[in-house]
Computed example of a mutant assay.
Amino acid sequence: MSRLSRQQRLLAMLTDTGELLVSEAAAVLGVSDDTIRRDLCALQKQGCLRKTHGGAVSIDLGGMPRTTRSSLLPVQKKRIGEAAAAAVPAGATLFLDAGSTTLAMAEALAVPATVITNSLDIASRIEGRPALRLILAGGEWDSRQRLFSGAAARSVLGQYRADIAILGACAVSTHGAVTAGEERDADMKRSMINAASEAWLLTDHLKFGHVEPHHVADLAQFCRVYSDRSRPGPAMEQARPEFIVTS
């Protein structure tokens, strides 16, 4: 296993449980305790975790830079994106939110469609594909979150109507609140939902059970949720969206 793959596994383990021990992680990954300690030091320098005596504890997922969060659960995100892309009808107009899972969906999109996005990463990956008409909702650039936002970006969204708004999530509470860590990101997500006929949510299980400061929508406002796990809590068993579990 490469160092990058090992560190991704450590981050996924840590985010899933909240804490880990060096000895347990070494046993699971089949490496020495010293190797795990070096990995934890490197991840702490990147702002991904906080080391403790004998292990590490997670930090706020929503507080991570988007580039750091995007390294978590790459296989699961790819499967989620592929499942959502396969359900898009030909000729649809889509709002695509910024994020690693929506990026995976854009990369897997195989039917003709119009894609309206505030993500430079998504735009750069799909530009030049003749079956896709691309519209970039430009505005103020946020290099940390890798997205455009603000009044200018919302103005662009306001000129269009989409068949489907496809969003990622910073957090999904056990009571069904979808929230974001940044106010401008939440504003863009709400604008996409309000200007679309329906909304889909793409989220991995690491976002379940968390709450960020800025409300985006209630889960009941989404028609579908694509995830690698089922509903995040018993209080959501009767929630409206159809859950499509990909792994």
Rank of each mutant, 00 (worst) to 15 (best):
residue 155 S to Y: 11
residue 165 A to P: 03
residue 198 E to K: 08
residue 176 G to Q: 03
residue 187 D to K: 12
residue 182 E to N: 11
residue 159 Q to H: 12
residue 175 H to L: 15
residue 170 C to L: 05
residue 196 A to F: 05
residue 182 E to C: 10
residue 186 A to Y: 04
residue 149 S to Q: 15
residue 196 A to Q: 00
residue 168 G to W: 07
residue 175 H to N: 15
residue 169 A to I: 07
residue 181 G to T: 02
residue 186 A to W: 01
residue 193 I to T: 01
residue 172 V to L: 15
residue 153 A to R: 00
residue 150 G to M: 07
residue 178 V to W: 00
residue 166 I to V: 04
residue 147 L to M: 15
residue 164 I to W: 07
residue 197 S to V: 03
residue 157 L to V: 11
residue 150 G to Q: 04
residue 171 A to R: 10
residue 190 R to L: 02
residue 180 A to P: 09
residue 145 Q to D: 14
residue 160 Y to C: 11
residue 189 K to N: 06
residue 165 A to C: 07
residue 195 A to Q: 12
residue 193 I to Y: 06
residue 162 A to Q: 00
residue 163 D to N: 10
residue 183 E to D: 06
residue 156 V to N: 01
residue 194 N to G: 12
residue 167 L to D: 11
residue 190 R to K: 08
residue 176 G to L: 00
residue 150 G to L: 09
residue 157 L to F: 12
residue 153 A to F: 04
residue 156 V to D: 01
residue 186 A to D: 05
residue 192 M to T: 09
residue 149 S to T: 14
residue 171 A to Q: 05
residue 172 V to P: 11
residue 159 Q to P: 02
residue 150 G to D: 00
residue 156 V to W: 04
residue 198 E to T: 12
residue 182 E to F: 10
residue 186 A to Q: 12
residue 172 V to D: 01
residue 193 I to V: 05
residue 177 A to N: 13
residue 164 I to A: 02
residue 180 A to T: 07
residue 195 A to P: 06
residue 190 R to W: 02
residue 151 A to H: 14
residue 197 S to F: 09
residue 176 G to A: 04
residue 173 S to C: 01
residue 148 F to K: 03
residue 186 A to N: 12
residue 154 R to Y: 02
residue 157 L to H: 03
residue 158 G to C: 09
residue 155 S to I: 01
residue 187 D to Y: 10
residue 169 A to Y: 07
residue 157 L to G: 00
residue 160 Y to L: 09
residue 168 G to D: 06
residue 169 A to V: 10
residue 174 T to E: 14
residue 179 T to I: 05
residue 190 R to G: 04
residue 189 K to G: 03
residue 176 G to H: 09
residue 163 D to V: 07
residue 170 C to S: 06
residue 191 S to M: 08
residue 184 R to W: 11
residue 172 V to R: 15
residue 193 I to P: 04
residue 176 G to T: 11
residue 184 R to F: 11
residue 179 T to D: 09
residue 158 G to Q: 06
residue 165 A to G: 06
residue 187 D to G: 07
residue 154 R to D: 09
residue 196 A to N: 01
residue 152 A to K: 12
residue 167 L to H: 09
residue 164 I to K: 08
residue 181 G to K: 00
residue 154 R to K: 11
residue 147 L to P: 13
residue 149 S to V: 14
residue 151 A to V: 12
residue 190 R to H: 02
residue 174 T to R: 13
residue 165 A to T: 05
residue 186 A to F: 05
residue 176 G to K: 03
residue 165 A to H: 01
residue 179 T to A: 06
residue 178 V to P: 01
residue 192 M to V: 02
residue 161 R to Q: 13
residue 160 Y to M: 13
residue 190 R to A: 10
residue 153 A to N: 03
residue 152 A to I: 06
residue 148 F to A: 10
residue 199 A to H: 15
residue 194 N to Q: 15
residue 173 S to F: 10
residue 145 Q to W: 05
residue 189 K to R: 14
residue 164 I to D: 00
residue 185 D to W: 04
residue 160 Y to F: 14
residue 164 I to Q: 07
residue 145 Q to Y: 03
residue 192 M to F: 11
residue 148 F to S: 13
residue 172 V to Q: 11
residue 156 V to H: 00
residue 152 A to L: 08
residue 193 I to R: 08
residue 173 S to N: 13
residue 158 G to V: 01
